[in-house]
């Protein structure tokens, strides 16, 4: 049973992530008063990308993008997801924080070998942005860990069973809101798409990607959409023992985030960092102080 979880949870995460990507394009189209592509469009794109013959700039160009996706898939195994958490006793939330590094670092290494000025700018922005959102993110995770006095994600979920959701508890309400504010920054989508700004720096770190490289990067993006939201659901919405309920919770959070994403223009780098260090950080900090005071 345990062994099956190792296979089922990444596959389910992939399906959900791809579905969310398709859904987001569809909903965005409707907000723009367009018809929009079919829900399956991301899959069609992936089929095409995998069939293309593209260029490589060297071994690290390949290894980096593989590392990025491999780390993200491994990360799924640490996240409690509909009653499944294949690697629950292996380091908990602290390890999750760290394995989240694989994706940006892999892309950065790969892009670095790509040797394009656009990539350099993109990577630099990506890291600066991550420095920006890590402040509130670390504070949020610390608030949750301190409140439940554990570093295990499974224990956090367990402590919220039977509707004791953290989002609606007094100390963790503000950190929960802060998390919603930083979701777009963590995913690198509008209003925080400054790393991959297509109009400005030609999609940044992915400027030299085509074919299978782009496909792996897209899959990685699909996974990280799922992971970021699943982490929110686990930490603040009580997770779920049931895959269907878990998916519904993810869907609700995703659509709320999407409505923000659809109507906002892009921040400049400094504006983004200053925003992230101001509002979400202050909210998360307030939450942490309340947690400590109680």
């Amino acid at each position: 049973m345990k062994l099956a979880e190792f296979i089922i949870s990444p596959i389910l995460a992939f399906i959900i992530g791809i579905f969310l990507m398709g859904l987001s394009r569809r909903i965005m189209a409707r907000i723009h008063r367009r018809y929009g592509p079919p829900l399956m469009q991301p899959v069609i794109d992936l089929v095409k990308l995998f069939s293309q013959r593209t260029v490589s700039h060297g071994p690290i160009f390949d290894i980096g993008v593989i590392l990025s996706l491999a780390g993200t898939i491994a990360l799924i195994l640490f996240i409690p997801f509909g009653g499944m958490c294949p690697l629950e006793a292996s380091g908990g939330l602290l390890v999750i924080l760290y394995i989240m590094l694989f994706a940006p670092l892999g892309l950065a290494l790969s892009g670095g070998e790509g040797a394009n000025p656009n990539i350099s700018i993109g990577i630099s922005r990506k890291f600066i942005l991550s420095l920006g959102y890590e402040v509130p993110f670390i504070l949020i995770v610390l608030a949750v860990m301190t409140y439940y006095h554990t570093i295990s994600a499974v224990d956090v979920v367990k402590a919220q069973s039977s509707f004791h959701w953290a989002l609606f508890s007094l100390p963790l309400f503000l950190p929960g809101l802060a998390y919603i504010l930083i979701i777009p920054a963590m995913l690198g989508i509008r209003p925080f798409d400054l790393a991959s700004a297509p109009q400005e720096i030609s999609s940044g770190p992915m400027a030299e990607y085509g074919g299978k490289y782009l496909a792996l990067a897209e899959i990685e993006h699909a996974f990280s959409i799922f992971i970021t939201i699943a982490l929110f659901v686990d930490m603040f919405l009580g997770g779920s023992g049931n895959v269907v309920y878990f998916f519904l919770k993810v869907l609700v959070v995703f659509i709320i985030g999407l409505l923000i994403n659809a109507v906002f223009p892009r921040f400049r780098t400094e504006q983004a960092v200053k925003f992230l260090w101001k509002w979400p950080s202050v909210m998360a900090l307030a939450g942490l102080v309340i947690v400590l005071a109680i």
Binding site: A29, Y35, Q52, S203
Partner: peptide, 22 residues
Amino acid sequence: LTSRWDAERFGIIPVATPRQAN
């Protein structure tokens, strides 16, 4: 490409670099 004729419904989108385009 935009709302009036919406080429995205056929999967046509503009991309930033030739590496990604076909």
